[in-house]
């Protein structure tokens, strides 16, 4: 039933997916661009929006140097379509600015404006990924509320699990959302990934009374670092690697 619903939605209007992690440095951005690349390889029209507004870095991961970014759309009068970039990996990309203080602490009205911009620019895409910054700022919460599907990236570290749980709890308590889908990153094998997921799942069930969905686990793979160094997406550079295979499987789970 769930899958059928998803398919119906995908055929009609864009599915907006937030990708968050609670704790920084668990591989959120890397997973986002690789899922986007994998989905566009499957023929989907995909847009990635860098919503890590104060510390954007997708452009660096992709080796592109955008002239203009979301800041110019929010604070200037640049048209959002002039900021869009078609990447070599096949998906479109809306860059944000890095190191700009105003962007890290957006006022409510700016967040609203940004949501309008995203709604407007999403037209015509199948999937829109919003890569959200770490932490539980108001901006992070707002984007999670706005998105139809909420991906949460965790690693096996207890701090990452605790922070992911803290974020899930906050969003659930504030907005009543239960649409969380967990991706466990940097695991030894599937068993370890499942163990991490089951741990989060049991605590969500016990204290919040709902179960998140397990989207999959991605093994630790040294080619990930190499793909980042080469500023190319992993699924294109090392499509046979363990991590790339898993990412493709997750992409299939997102869009069967």
């Amino acid at each position: 039933m769930f899958h059928l619903e998803e398919r119906l939605v995908a055929e009609n209007s864009p599915v907006i997916i937030s990708v968050a992690s609670g704790k920084g440095g668990v591989g959120k951005t890397c997973i986002t661009i690789n899922l986007a690349a994998s989905l566009s390889e499957k023929g989907k029209r995909v847009l990635v929006i860098d919503c890590d507004l104060g510390l954007a870095n997708i452009d660096i991961m992709l080796g592109i140097n955008p002239r203009r970014n979301l800041k110019d759309v929010i604070f200037g009068d640049v048209d959002v379509r002039d900021v869009l970039i078609r990447t070599e990996a096949g998906f479109d990309f809306l860059p944000a600015s890095s190191g700009v203080r105003e962007m890290a602490q957006l006022l409510h009205e700016h967040i609203e404006k940004l949501k309008d911009i995203i709604t407007q620019v999403s037209e015509g895409y199948d999937y829109v990924f919003c890569d959200i910054g770490a932490g539980i700022s108001d901006t992070v919460l707002q984007f999670n509320l706005f998105a139809a599907r909420n991906f949460v990236i965790v690693s096996k570290d207890l701090t990452s699990i605790t922070d992911a749980y803290a974020m899930i709890k906050t969003i659930y308590r504030t907005y009543g959302k239960t649409s969380f889908e967990i991706i466990v990153n940097s695991v030894r094998d599937d068993d370890e990934g499942l163990k991490v997921f089951n741990h989060i799942d049991s605590i969500c069930k016990r204290f919040l009374n709902f179960s998140p969905r397990h989207l999959g686990s991605i093994p630790f793979d040294e080619v990930v670092t190499r793909s980042i160094m080469k500023q190319t997406v992993l699924v294109r550079l090392f499509p046979e690697s363990g991590a790339a295979v898993k990412i493709n499987q997750i992409a299939h789970a997102i869009s069967p």
Binding site: I136, T162, A166, K169, H199
Partner: peptide
């Protein structure tokens, strides 16, 4: 909204 003691215990010990 913060993770409370019980939750922390569950997160840590299990």
């Amino acid at each position: 909204n913060e993770v409370n003691r019980d939750e922390k215990d569950a997160l840590f010990t299990d």
